[in-house]
Simulated assay, not measured.
Amino acid sequence: MIEDQHQFNYNRIAEVIEYIKNNFKEQPNLEELADQVHLSPFHFQRLFSEWAGTSPKKFLQYTSIEHAKKLLTDNRATLVETAFETGLSGTGRLHDLFINIEGMTPAEYKNGGNNLSINYSFAASRFGNLIVASTSKGICHMAFNDDETIALNDLKLKFPNANFQKKLDLIQQNALLIFQNDWSKLPEVKLHLKGTDFQLKVWETLLKIPMGQLSTYGNIAQQIGNVNASRAVGTAIGSNPVAILIPCHRVIQSTGNIGGYMWGETR
């Protein structure tokens, strides 16, 4: 009986997800989505969040912004046309959507980070030398590398059109305190991440791993609502742009093996 109910709920949420993918340009509200599976908005919100790992509103935003990103990347539309083609009322809503999810404006995304100012610096830690970079919105990159030239080139590849300045700012200083076991400033550290909606979802889940504890690829897949996505989760974890702060080092294989680490298993 329980299995039947689980299958029934799975089918209902799958139906709504398909509906959102086909009708996101209409920007359906919570009541409209709940009506698709004959639930009250309250119960639908709770059930959808339980199965999809995010709210219906956020899922609609992710779906909308993926469409907008494709239009902008392919240079197929202006910002006004992109907003219209995505079902948004204007460029203001498009701007807010990109700021909230991508951490940059639609124009910055379209131009590959053009006019985006990034400060970077190099630091020594107990785990080796690293590069840390930040925008005005937060830490956008932290990686171990003993070769400063290679480290800087890797950073520039991620933001090919940004403006770079070698400067240690307060955002970086607060983040680097983690290596001194001073975590008092960590709540003030903001992250400015660029990734797909799936990657962002995985990285957000990593942040919820309790300090000093471990998780597995399977557990992370389960937490994001896709138990069969362990391999995709591993790929997303392997793309983590911020070492230590986003604790990809706390994820191991279910067998207990480390399973690899972007900056070396020894580290």
Rank of each mutant, 00 (worst) to 15 (best):
V202L: 11
T255M: 07
K208H: 15
L207D: 03
L157S: 11
G238E: 10
Y19P: 04
E102A: 03
N240D: 12
L30Y: 05
N226W: 02
T135F: 03
E188D: 09
Y10Q: 12
T82R: 10
A175D: 09
L33F: 03
K110G: 04
E32D: 07
H95K: 12
M211V: 08
I13M: 08
L207Y: 10
M104W: 05
K21V: 11
G234K: 02
A236F: 08
A52D: 00
L170I: 15
F144L: 08
Y120H: 13
T216F: 03
M1Q: 10
S239W: 04
N129F: 03
G259C: 14
I252Q: 00
L71E: 14
Y120V: 05
Q199H: 11
F122E: 06
S134L: 07
N100M: 04
F159R: 00
L214Y: 14
V132A: 05
K21S: 12
K166R: 08
G259F: 14
P28C: 03
S64Q: 10
S55H: 08
T78W: 15
E18Q: 13
F44R: 01
Y19R: 02
F84D: 10
R126E: 14
S254V: 12
I99N: 02
N219G: 13
V242L: 11
N153H: 07
G234C: 04
L206G: 11
I150M: 01
I178C: 06
Q5C: 04
S254D: 10
